[in-house]
Design a protein around this nucleic acid. Sequence first.
DNA 1: GCTTGACCTTATAGTAGCTCCAAGGTTTGA
DNA 2: TCAAACCTTGGAGCTACTATAAGGTCAAGC
Lengths: 152, 152
Amino acid sequence: MLIGELARETACDSETIRFYEKEGLISAPARSSSGYRRYQQEHVGQLNFVLHCRSLGMSLAEIRTLSAFRRDPSLACVEINTLIDGHIEQVHQQIETLKRLEQQLHALRQRCQEGTDAAHCGILQTLVQAAEGEGCVCHDAPLHTPGTAHPH
Amino acid sequence: MLIGELARETACDSETIRFYEKEGLISAPARSSSGYRRYQQEHVGQLNFVLHCRSLGMSLAEIRTLSAFRRDPSLACVEINTLIDGHIEQVHQQIETLKRLEQQLHALRQRCQEGTDAAHCGILQTLVQAAEGEGCVCHDAPLHTPGTAHPH
DNA sequence: GCTTGACCTTATAGTAGCTCCAAGGTTTGA
DNA sequence: TCAAACCTTGGAGCTACTATAAGGTCAAGC
């Protein structure tokens, strides 16, 4: 199987497959005499595993760790649980942060309902005032939202 | 005011201030004879505006657009509303996506409650099966979570 | 006058997870 | 024989910073 066929089968871009190989997330396939990558069925499984984990928002580092357990199933799974728990907590924090953000944005949006010019735009006024005034309490909570994954 | 003082006053790193200047988000200050940046009160306002918008999760491109309206208040504010609405929608989508993700992760976590080895770890088994099976419906929704901002 | 330390400058490289492009080689079908 | 569709590598680009190196400046203390 050439890289293009694997790409179609897994709905993953060829470039991304090469990238995952370089990053050690999938094993390097055999090469044809002309240097083309020749994939086997096992690579489909490996790649799908990575893509599935990515779709669950895991980082490449986390997936590398899980892959190690996949390769050597004698290892303790406590670490797997810890990894998943950590990831759940991360996602939970992101949700909470984004919810607060959503509320702030809705409040901001309320300030301008009609289309005039920017001089009278309540949104802009609010943003400028918030930046200049000391009493702005709407952004004292940290925002940390690490990027998550692409569709699988 | 030197860059360090502005940094302390706004709780923004000096490097980041220079970066914002290079990106055109704040105006370039006058320089002393030795090349040091000399900031005025207006720069504090500009920088706080940027930081506040960042704390609301806006991208630098969005902030550039808002800054233009701030500089020229005769422009229509319809675009401001559109920008904010788009941003709210983005945040809303992120929240929905992350909520689905959270549920999937909780379901996954249920698969392994006790610490044995990875061979019998339900989490790993589930991940591997999900990757290999066709019938995995748990990751057909796209995940797009652009990074958001740091605390202000 | 000299040294020390805190400040400032620019330029460059690194982070995550890809994505895109250029310049070339290979294979397949008409 | 030729074109289209594939493949290769290497490098740059994206976001929003962060970190480092190598050097210049300035004020205080001795």
